[in-house]
């Protein structure tokens, strides 16, 4: 479904991605874990064409999106939903309008149908009754749920989650993970989750990959990943600092 081949990206003199190779299978949830600032979000932004790579390719359903632009890129993007790190909700719009936004902009559905879908999406994420609140009036967890509802509303084939639980308490982390799992069962999308929630992320992923020093150094099922002999993976799972981090 999504295949990333030899992806390189530098910002100035800083090399962030140094040849990422990763295959994300159709209908599965793949988690990419790794240290903060390791380029996970940069990787995600490449997949939706927000950043162009220096080298390498990303195939989505057989099309190399790094070579696309304009309408053809938009066609691919319309199959993808993204849940951004901070939610990226539009401040000037209510919860209802935020969730309805992708459908309103596409302009293919009638008002009544959009209304039905928005109400359902909000109830799926447990936010019924919050339709007319503004993002600034919501808690962090609620904002993430609205972002999830907005990503789900157009029933995309692929959903990318950029650290969907960052900054939330452990109970909310579980709640959001549960919502992702339920949504995945209901809609059957292909998911990519950028996260560093260990061990919670193992419960909702079919596959886990670790990005370290600009490369994917381990991929496997959660069980395989936890048994990895790679010292970086072991340290990451156990939360041990590496030599360069020692004070």
């Amino acid at each position: 479904m999504i295949e990333i081949k030899d992806l390189h990206k530098s910002f100035g003199t800083q090399r962030v991605l140094k040849g990422v190779n990763l295959k994300i299978e159709e209908g599965q949830v793949t988690a990419v874990v790794g240290r903060s600032g390791g380029g996970k979000s940069v990787l995600l932004k490449h997949i939706v064409g927000l950043i162009k790579p220096d080298r390498g390719s990303i195939f989505i359903r057989g099309q190399d999106i790094t070579k696309l632009s304009g309408k053809r890129l938009d066609e691919i993007r319309s199959q993808i939903g993204v849940v951004f790190q901070g939610g990226a909700l539009f401040d000037s719009l209510t919860v209802y309008d935020n969730v309805a936004f992708p459908l309103v902009e596409k302009g293919k559905l009638k008002k009544e149908e959009i209304h039905k879908r928005v109400i359902k999406a909000l109830s799926d994420v447990g936010l019924q009754g919050m339709e007319y609140k503004y993002p600034a009036e919501l808690s962090g967890g609620m904002r993430k749920r609205v972002a999830l509802a907005r990503a789900l509303i157009s029933e995309p084939k692929i959903i990318l989650f950029d650290e969907p639980t960052t900054g939330l308490d452990p109970i909310l982390v579980r709640t959001i993970h549960k919502l992702i799992r339920q949504a995945h069962e209901q809609y059957g999308f292909t998911g990519l989750i950028i996260s560093h929630e260990i061990p919670e992320i193992f419960e909702i992923s079919d596959k886990v990959a670790m990005l370290h020093d600009g490369k994917i150094i381990e991929v496997g099922t959660p069980e395989e990943f936890q048994k990895s002999e790679n010292p970086y993976v072991k340290n990451f799972i156990m939360g041990l600092e590496e030599q360069e981090d020692r004070l």
Binding site: R77, A88, F90, D91
Partner: peptide, 17 residues
């Protein structure tokens, strides 16, 4: 500017707007 730094502009782009 706030829309840019809070990724709202990115959100528009990925929604093909």
């Amino acid at each position: 500017g706030i829309m840019r730094i809070t990724e709202q502009i990115d959100a528009l782009t990925v929604m093909a707007v």
